[in-house]
């Protein structure tokens, strides 16, 4: 560290300093890698290696309880999955849940963020309570809502005006998916609203004031000033939540166990691998699930980038 500080006004000095600087940057490079290496190794150990293994296993017909029957089948597992209606139904469910929950969360979360942003009293209470759903175990949330919607032990049927008391929410696909979405939305809206709140607090009051002076209505201010300026926060929130929702598993496991066609892609993979011990076809599903997530991430990033660029041009 001291090398940079000692500089003498001699002709060769700049040369030496440059050499010292490269040496220093090399040292910094080395130190940097030393410091991040454990974390990187740890992250890759549990993801990259198993992923390669899944890739390898996916080329076999391999059932754990019948190891002698293991045989190389090439891409047949992928073919079987991709031509199977179950896979597409489950992917459809997953995308449905993702779109619905993220859309609803975005709206409710934004409303919550607006309230919290303007709030001048009881800030601590609100912040504390909004963190409770965030911190609660997803399984607990799933149980709470499962019981609430339950035919025998739930209050929902009694409270909802148009629903009969003996309506079985988990008896058919769409009501069951609805219940699953409710639990997911309840638990994760706070996260969304906090991210949006952070974005909201970055908008300068002056800009809003100026818009107000210019005679912009509340609605116009919302769409022309607030939302465009929150794009980054919204993008991050949506990206994270969308990918999180796409992995939905806990709620489905607890609430329906995938019955009535409410299975998600994650749950299907879990069932093949863990319940049926079909490591071959299960690994193919794992790989496909991974690719789906990458695809969605790619699409979302692309979509937002285009939007962001467009916004910049407009501004």
């Amino acid at each position: 560290m001291a090398t940079g500080a000692v500089t003498a006004p001699r002709p060769q000095a700049s040369d030496r300093a440059r050499r010292a600087a490269t040496e220093r940057s090399r040292g910094e490079n080395r130190l940097g890698w030393k410091l991040v290496a454990p974390a990187v190794v740890m992250m890759l150990l549990v993801t990259a290696y198993p992923m390669f293994r899944a890739l390898y296993l996916s080329l076999y017909k391999y059932r754990l309880t019948a190891p002698e029957d293991r045989e190389f089948v090439g891409l047949n597992n992928y073919l079987a999955v991709l031509t199977d209606s179950l896979w597409w139904i489950d992917v459809g469910n997953t995308v449905f849940i993702m779109v619905v929950t993220v859309a609803v969360e975005l709206v409710i979360g934004f409303a919550f963020a607006m309230v919290m942003h303007r709030l001048i009293f009881a800030r601590g209470i609100v912040r504390t309570s909004i963190l409770i759903p965030y911190g609660i175990i997803t399984v607990v949330s799933a149980f709470a809502w499962q019981f609430a919607f339950s035919l025998n032990n739930g209050f929902v049927n009694g409270w909802l005006p148009l629903v009969g008391d003996d309506f079985n929410w988990f008896g058919s696909k769409w009501p069951a998916l609805f219940a699953i979405c409710v639990s997911e939305i309840w638990k994760t809206t706070p996260f969304m609203s906090l991210l949006l709140l952070a974005g909201l607090s970055q908008i300068s009051e002056d800009m809003l004031e100026a818009a107000k002076v210019d005679g912009a209505t509340w609605w116009q201010r919302l769409w022309k000033v607030i939302i465009p300026n929150m794009r980054a926060a919204i993008m991050v929130a949506v990206l994270f939540r969308a990918l999180d929702a796409f992995r939905i598993f806990d709620n489905i496991y607890v609430m329906t166990r995938g019955a009535q066609g409410t299975e998600s892609a994650s749950f299907l993979t879990y069932r093949q691998v863990i319940e049926q011990f079909e490591l071959g076809i299960g690994s193919a599903l794992s790989v496909l699930l991974f690719l789906s997530v990458m695809l969605i991430a790619f699409l979302l990033v692309k979509l937002f980038k285009v939007d962001l660029a467009a916004a910049r041009q407009e501004g």
Binding site: V36, Y49, M51, A54, R247, F267, L279, G282, S286
Partner: peptide
């Protein structure tokens, strides 16, 4: 690169790991 790896892992579908991890 490090940040990208972290980002990729944060988005990783954990269920796709349980099979190979269990086996390992």
């Amino acid at each position: 690169v490090v940040l990208s790896i972290a980002l990729a892992i944060a988005m990783f579908p954990v269920v796709s790991l349980v099979g190979p991890l269990f086996d390992q």
